[in-house]
Deep mutational scan, measured.
Amino acid sequence: FIDQHRAALIARVTNVEWLLDALYGKVLTDEQYQAVRAEPTNPSKMRKLFSFTPAWNWTCKDLLLQALRESQSYLVEDLER
């Protein structure tokens, strides 16, 4: 899901800070967390977050999807259609 809908997630996720907090310490290191937060816009934050995903396994991507479902369920539901 995460890889399949990358472009839509970059464009449409609005609550990136919540995602970062949910992933911090589980998937994201402090350095990665700070790097994403330093980006000026939500799309650039999501691009930076996605720059780390090639090194993630399915469990990490599932944690991101779970966080998306909790914070932006309407968006996930729309993309699952």
Rank of each mutant, 00 (worst) to 15 (best):
D62K: 13
L9V: 00
L20A: 10
R37N: 13
F52G: 00
K45Q: 04
L20V: 08
T41F: 00
L63Y: 14
E17W: 05
A8W: 03
L23K: 05
Q32H: 03
L65Y: 13
V36E: 02
P43E: 14
R69K: 14
Y33T: 12
T29N: 09
P43Q: 14
L9H: 03
K26Y: 04
V16H: 02
T59M: 13
E31F: 02
E31I: 06
S51D: 12
Y74K: 15
R12I: 02
K48M: 11
Q34N: 14
L28F: 01
L75R: 06
Q32I: 03
L68M: 08
F50N: 03
A7I: 05
K61H: 14
D21E: 13
V36G: 04
A8L: 03
V36K: 09
R6E: 12
E17P: 04
T59Q: 15
A8T: 11
M46N: 00
K45P: 02
T59N: 14
Q34L: 10
D78M: 11
V76G: 06
V27S: 06
A7N: 14
T14R: 11
L20M: 08
L28M: 03
F1V: 01
R6K: 14
M46A: 04
Q72W: 05
R47I: 11
L63F: 09
K48N: 02
L28W: 03
N57S: 14
E80M: 09
L9R: 01
D3S: 06
R6Q: 10
F52K: 00
G25M: 08
Q32L: 00
K48T: 05
D62N: 11
L75S: 04
D3P: 00
D3G: 02
W18P: 15
W58R: 15
L75T: 01
S51K: 00
K48F: 06
I10N: 03
W58P: 15
R69S: 06
D62F: 11
A8K: 07
D78G: 11
Q72K: 05
N57I: 10
L23T: 00
K45W: 02
E80D: 12
T14G: 10
D30W: 10
L63K: 10
T14Q: 11
E39F: 04
Y33M: 12
S44K: 10
C60G: 15
E17A: 05
D78Q: 12
T53Y: 15
L9S: 01
N42K: 03
K48L: 09
V27Q: 05
Y74W: 14
A7C: 11
A55G: 15
Q4E: 13
I10T: 07
T29D: 05
Q34T: 10
A67H: 03
T59G: 14
T59E: 15
Q4F: 09
L28I: 12
A7K: 13
F52D: 00
V13Q: 03
R47G: 05
W58C: 14
F52A: 03
R12L: 00
Y33S: 09
V76R: 01
L19S: 02
R6Y: 09
I10W: 03
L63D: 03
A38K: 13
E77G: 07
S71R: 06
I10P: 00
K45D: 00
W58A: 15
G25L: 08
F50C: 01
E39S: 02
E80P: 07
L49C: 00
A38C: 10
R6P: 04
D62E: 14
Q32P: 00
L20K: 01
W58M: 15
S73K: 10
G25H: 11
T59V: 12
E31W: 07
Y24R: 15
L64K: 01
A67P: 04
Q4A: 09
A67E: 07
V13S: 06
T14A: 08
N42R: 06
C60L: 08
V16I: 07
P43A: 13
L23V: 05
L23A: 03
S73A: 13
F50H: 00
E77A: 11
E31Y: 07
H5G: 02
E17C: 01
F50S: 02
L64D: 07
P54M: 10
P54I: 12
F1G: 00
L19D: 08
S71P: 03
K61F: 15
P43G: 10
L79Q: 04
D62Q: 13
Q32Y: 01
L65N: 06
V27D: 01
Q34S: 08
F1R: 07
A22L: 12
Q72V: 06
N15M: 02
L20F: 05
G25E: 11
D3L: 01
K61M: 08
F50Y: 14
L9P: 04
A35E: 13
T14L: 06
I10K: 01
L64C: 07
E77R: 11
A8F: 04
Y33H: 03
D21Q: 13
L19Y: 15
A38M: 13
D3I: 03
Y24T: 05
C60Q: 15
L49D: 01
V16R: 06
W58S: 15
L79S: 01
H5E: 08
R69E: 10
T14M: 05
G25A: 08
L49F: 02
L63N: 06
V27H: 03
L75C: 02
K45V: 05
W18F: 15
L28N: 02
V76W: 05
K61V: 05
L63W: 06
Q32V: 01
T59H: 14
Q72A: 11
L65P: 00
R12N: 12
S73T: 13
L75H: 05
A8E: 15
Y24S: 10
A38F: 10
K26D: 07
N42C: 05
A8Q: 13
E70G: 06
A55C: 12
E17Q: 13
T41N: 14
L65A: 13
R47D: 07
S51Q: 11
T53M: 14
Q4S: 06
R47A: 14
A22H: 12
A67L: 14
R12S: 07
T14F: 03
G25W: 09
P40E: 11
H5W: 09
N57Q: 03
L75V: 08
Y74F: 09
D21W: 07
N42W: 06
S44H: 10
D30A: 12
E31R: 11
A11E: 13
R12A: 04
M46V: 09
Q66K: 13
E17H: 04
T53E: 12
D78V: 08
E70Q: 14
L65F: 14
S71T: 13
W18E: 15
Y33I: 13
F52V: 05
D62A: 13
V27L: 05
T59P: 08
K48S: 01
V76D: 10
N42S: 08
L9K: 00
D21S: 09
F50I: 08
R37W: 09
L49I: 08
A35F: 02
F1H: 09
K61R: 08
K45N: 06
R69Q: 04
L49V: 02
R47T: 13
L68S: 02
Y74L: 14
Y24M: 07
V13K: 01
Y24D: 12
R12G: 12
Q72C: 10
R6W: 11
Q32F: 02
Y33L: 11
R69F: 05
L23Y: 06
L19R: 01
R37E: 10
L75Y: 04
Q4H: 10
N57R: 03
E39A: 07
N15Y: 06
A35V: 09
Q72F: 00
L79E: 03
D3W: 06
R47Y: 01
R6C: 03
R47Q: 13
L9D: 03
R37P: 03
Q4V: 12
L23E: 04
S44V: 00
V13P: 08
Q34I: 02
L49Q: 01
A38H: 11
W18L: 14
E31T: 07
N42L: 09
Q34K: 12
L64Q: 09
R69G: 03
L23N: 00
Q34W: 12
Y24V: 13
R12Y: 07
D62M: 10
W18S: 15
L65I: 09
F50A: 03
K26T: 14
W56D: 05
R12D: 04
Y24K: 15
N15P: 02
N57W: 07
Q32W: 01
R37K: 13
T41Y: 07
R12T: 03
V36L: 02
V36Q: 02
A55D: 13
A22K: 15
K48V: 07
D62T: 08
Y33A: 13
